[in-house]
Simulated scan of single mutants.
Amino acid sequence: MDVITSLQAFVQRYLDHHQHTQLPLTTEWDADWLSPCQQGEPDETGHIHWLPVARTDISDFRDTERALEIDFHPDIKAFFGAYWSENLAASAPRGELQLLMPWNADDFARLQQNLIGHVLMKKRLKQPITLFFAVTDDDDFILSLDNQTGQVMLERVGLPAKEVLAENLASFLDELTPR
């Protein structure tokens, strides 16, 4: 399977899980931080319902890639370009995580800036280039994609990624359980 198909399947499992458990998908509403995935109007507590929304625009990493003088792995571009969404909580065989998802166009721009900082750190430390896509419940570890091989890695921040969690992002997403 490809990343888009696997991500679509995970999003559907995520929505089914929340419908089954009757856990509402809400977040704090901010009039200055609107998103295509917001549903309806904010409630009396200042929260708004949201749902992941498939993006219709084409995400553009060209300027980021040009600035870094590298090409991003196609899987990471597909992953970050597929949906507008709040982060998605999941369980993997090795633990709990949150898939990082762009909330709106400004958040997508900020994500690219953070990826630039991450890649520059990797270059400065003379480590293989990885591209993060999820955070774990342990602040010292992130999940990243090896930019050369496409393997999903568990990475301690600031150190070379050593533990391979999946051969590719699609198979990793297929193993996730929503929470």
Rank of each mutant, 00 (worst) to 15 (best):
Q8A: 12
Q8T: 12
D146W: 02
I70V: 12
D138Q: 07
D138V: 05
I116L: 11
H73V: 03
D30W: 03
R179I: 12
S35C: 01
W29K: 01
T149M: 00
L51I: 11
F79C: 10
L111S: 04
S171L: 03
L23D: 14
V164Y: 03
L99R: 02
A89L: 11
H20P: 10
A92P: 00
M153R: 02
P102D: 06
E65V: 12
E65F: 12
P42L: 05
D174T: 09
H49D: 06
F79R: 12
L154I: 03
A105T: 00
T27Y: 09
C37E: 05
E167H: 13
D107A: 07
D75L: 10
G158H: 01
G40E: 07
Q98D: 08
L159M: 09
S6C: 11
L143H: 03
S171N: 03
Q19V: 14
G158V: 02
D137Y: 14
L176K: 02
M101C: 07
Q39A: 04
L120D: 15
H18S: 00
T177Q: 09
P128K: 06
F108K: 00
N104W: 09
Q151C: 11
D32P: 06
M153W: 00
I116P: 08
H17E: 08
G95H: 02
L51K: 13
